[in-house]
Simulated scan of single mutants.
Amino acid sequence: MSTQYKIGDLVLAKLGTAPLVGVVVYRDVKRDRYLIRFSGVQQDYYSADELTPYSPSKKA
């Protein structure tokens, strides 16, 4: 069973050769894909297996 992400979750998605941090903005239930937005103009669909949860390190 793959991880279920919610809208607003931060994820790492591999785009090209480097993983980028993006945010889940939509889930296409029919295709079982997530729309990940990286910037105001860059977004793409990914399956849950292509994503990794991201949590920023907390430095004081």
Rank of each mutant, 00 (worst) to 15 (best):
K6G: 03
K6E: 15
I7G: 06
G8T: 03
G8R: 04
G8I: 06
L10N: 07
L10W: 08
L10Y: 11
L10F: 13
L10C: 07
L10S: 11
V11S: 11
L12H: 03
L12Q: 09
A13W: 01
A13T: 03
A13L: 03
A13N: 03
L15Q: 11
L15C: 10
L15P: 00
G16T: 12
G16D: 14
G16V: 13
G16H: 15
T17L: 10
T17E: 09
T17W: 06
T17Q: 04
A18N: 14
A18P: 00
A18Q: 15
P19V: 14
P19T: 12
P19W: 14
P19Y: 11
L20V: 06
V21Q: 09
G22N: 07
G22A: 06
G22W: 09
G22H: 09
G22S: 06
V23H: 02
V23M: 10
V23F: 02
V23T: 10
V23K: 08
V24L: 04
V24Y: 01
V24Q: 02
V24E: 02
V24W: 01
V25F: 02
V25P: 01
Y26C: 07
Y26N: 09
Y26L: 13
Y26S: 06
R27Q: 10
R27N: 11
D28L: 09
D28S: 14
D28W: 05
V29F: 05
V29I: 11
V29G: 01
V29Q: 13
V29E: 15
K30I: 03
K30T: 06
K30V: 07
K30P: 03
K30R: 05
R31Q: 15
R31P: 02
R31M: 06
D32N: 12
D32I: 02
R33M: 10
R33D: 02
R33Y: 08
R33E: 07
Y34T: 00
Y34I: 05
Y34A: 01
L35C: 13
L35N: 09
L35H: 09
I36S: 01
I36T: 07
R37W: 02
R37I: 02
R37T: 13
R37G: 04
R37V: 05
R37Y: 01
F38K: 06
F38E: 03
S39F: 03
S39D: 11
G40Q: 11
V41I: 12
V41S: 14
V41L: 12
Q42R: 15
Q42E: 12
Q42C: 08
Q43C: 05
Q43P: 00
Q43D: 10
Q43K: 12
D44W: 11
D44A: 15
D44I: 04
D44F: 05
D44R: 14
Y45H: 09
Y45V: 07
Y45W: 15
Y46R: 12
Y46P: 04
Y46G: 10
S47E: 13
S47H: 12
A48V: 03
A48H: 02
A48W: 05
D49W: 04
D49P: 00
D49I: 09
D49Y: 10
